[in-house]
């Protein structure tokens, strides 16, 4: 099957030192793939580079057969590549409803916005009652639901999720993780997610990459890794 998203020999960083080097990963249609690795191994950088928030120094990003390496972020979003950023990054001063509407910014047709918002509320019923609340006033878990909902409002054709569990209580994470599965099943879209928690990733992912100092150290089924010592070393940084 042709990959939905293909990253080939990607090198990039913030200063003049590359944070990721010659990195190649792929995401097939309908697949849920985890990107694992220790703190500072470059997971977030990979997602940011795929979205174009960080320009690629070398290499290519191909989405659904089109090369998007040099395209602006909003053009990639238009093509269907959508990301849920780490730490949620909601528009705190806007209502939940306006946050969701912003997710549908590229279509912004009232009937479509209503339909999609209804889908989000079906996925996260608790958000329905919070529509008029400011996003900044919500709990961390509720904010993460809005962040996922905002991404879904764009009708993604592939979803990137950066650290869904960041800063959230385990109970809340338990509630949110199944949503990723549901998103895949409901929308039939592939998901590439970055996660600190290997065990959670194992439950969720079809496939995983382990990132170590900006390079892919391993690739395979996460269950393999869960027992593998090399992974523990790479992941825990011991």
């Amino acid at each position: 099957m042709a990959a939905m998203l293909e990253v080939r020999d990607l090198t990039t960083g913030y200063t003049d030192v590359p944070l990721i080097a010659d990195l190649s990963i792929s995401l097939a249609p309908g697949e849920v793939v985890a990107l694992l690795g220790a703190n500072g191994s470059g997971k977030t950088t990979v997602l940011r580079a795929i979205m174009g928030l960080l320009p690629a120094w070398q290499g290519r990003v191909v989405f659904d057969g089109q090369e998007v390496t040099r395209r602006a972020v909003h053009e990639r979003v238009k093509a269907g590549l959508v990301m849920v950023p780490a730490g949620r990054r909601l528009f705190f001063g806007l209502s939940v409803e306006d946050n969701l509407k912003m997710g549908g910014y590229l279509t912004w047709e009232s009937r479509l916005l209503r339909e999609r918002m209804a889908e989000v509320f079906a996925l996260f019923p608790e958000l329905g009652k919070l529509r008029t609340h400011l996003a900044g006033k919500l709990s961390g878990g509720e904010q993460q639901m809005v962040a996922l909902g905002r991404a879904l409002m764009a009708r993604p054709r592939a979803l990137l999720i950066d650290e869904l569990s960041l800063g959230l209580a385990p109970v809340v994470v338990e509630r949110l993780m199944p949503a990723v599965e549901k998103i895949r099943n409901l929308f039939g879209i592939p998901v590439l997610f970055v996660e600190q928690d290997v065990l959670r990733a194992v439950e969720l992912a079809d496939r995983a990459y382990v990132l170590d100092q900006g390079r892919i150290a391993m690739e395979g089924h996460p269950k393999q890794f869960a027992q593998d010592r090399r992974l523990i070393r790479a992941y825990m940084g011991v």
């Binding site: 928030l53 950023p85 990054r89 528009f91 001063g93 912003m102 764009a154």
Partner: peptide, 11 residues
């Protein structure tokens, strides 16, 4: 409010 998140929404 959140420049990058706006970019990620397609702005």
């Amino acid at each position: 409010l959140e420049r990058e998140a706006a970019q990620l929404a397609g702005v």
